[in-house]
């Protein structure tokens, strides 16, 4: 069962995807802040001071296969007192602790590193803990990630996502290591910088959920897994041979060539990883290596 519903508001038409080579001239911080400003404009954010002392209206998706009354998916309304700095996660925790202890969602670190709480908030995949209530239109509609089986309320089955992550051999494979237990492999600062963004993935599955291709092709590796492959394929500490092996994995029928550069994964990534660019780069590498073309 999926909860993909008609989106309450269409996202602004994206800018046409630029040549990926042309992007990235600004620091990630600047880019992120800029995107955030744009996001604010889109949402017609409410001024925080207007919300002081107010309640926030949440519409939360509910479903439980074994509880009568919840077997048919429905939305429950919760009215939560607003506090400055309140996030979507804070709001659903309040609703659970004060109103309905059966309200179910994953969460742990509260600081955007455990990747547990990606939800579909007002029609966009976002981490609950990283999304300010004051930046959202009300009522705030909170649903589980689309295109994944719902286990209960906001909890989705992650097994397929994990399977895809594991399918790219997501571990360092370098047999030849420097002699001596205390001798490290050398890596240039440039190379570390090159893989840096790709290593930030927190496995939240927001990207996979946002991807139309993944929705239509269950075998598609998906942006997160391909990014994981990129993280190793671009790491100069691994041999060329392994790199070629990795490229073979991602250029298979359900790999990089499925990507149609819609940028939806890049758009929703809470860690600002340039996923689409990474996929594009792997395509180019595969062509360079003369690997089979699907």
């Amino acid at each position: 069962m999926s909860t993909q519903q008609e989106q309450p508001q269409e996202p602004e038409s994206q800018e046409a995807p630029e040549d990926p080579e042309m992007r990235g001239t600004e620091s990630p911080q600047q880019e992120r802040l800029k995107e955030k400003e744009q996001g604010l404009a889109q949402e017609e954010a409410v001024d925080e001071s207007d919300l002081e002392g107010e309640t926030v209206h949440l519409k939360v998706f509910r479903y439980d296969p074994e509880v009568e009354g919840k077997q048919e998916p429905r939305f429950d309304d919760f009215y939560v007192p607003f506090e400055k700095g309140m996030t979507v996660l804070d709001a659903v925790m309040y609703a659970r602790d004060e109103f309905d202890s059966s309200l179910t969602f994953r969460h742990s670190c509260r600081q955007a590193v455990c990747g547990s709480d990606a939800f579909f908030v007002n029609g966009k995949q976002q981490l609950g803990c990283k999304t300010q209530i004051s930046e959202l239109k009300q009522p705030v509609r909170i649903e589980p990630l689309p295109h994944q089986e719902v286990v209960k309320d906001l909890v989705v089955d992650m097994d397929h996502f994990y399977d895809q992550m594991h399918a790219v051999e997501p571990y360092f494979q370098q047999e030849e290591l420097p002699d001596g237990d205390l001798e490290e492999q050398r890596q240039s600062r440039e190379n570390r910088e090159k893989v840096k963004m790709s290593t930030r993935c927190i496995w939240c599955a927001a990207c996979m959920s946002s991807c139309n291709i993944a929705a239509g092709d269950n075998e598609y590796l998906g942006p997160a897994a391909i990014n994981k492959a990129y993280r190793f394929a671009m790491d100069e500490r691994e041999d060329e041979e392994i790199k070629e092996h990795r490229l073979r994995i991602v250029e298979q029928e359900h790999g990089v060539w499925r990507c149609q550069t819609q940028f939806s994964c890049t758009e929703v990534c809470p860690k600002d990883i340039p996923l689409t660019e990474h996929i594009q780069e792997l395509k180019r590498e595969a062509v360079k290596k003369n690997l089979k073309f699907w």
């Binding site: 360092f172 001798e183 490290e184 050398r186 890596q187 600062r189 570390r192």
Partner: peptide, 20 residues
């Protein structure tokens, strides 16, 4: 030894100019 073990497992440590 355990820290270098992590490096040998591919951990992306921050690096100096000489690659260490």
């Amino acid at each position: 030894e355990e820290t270098i073990q992590l490096e040998h497992w591919g951990m992306p440590f921050s690096r100096e100019d000489d690659g260490r």
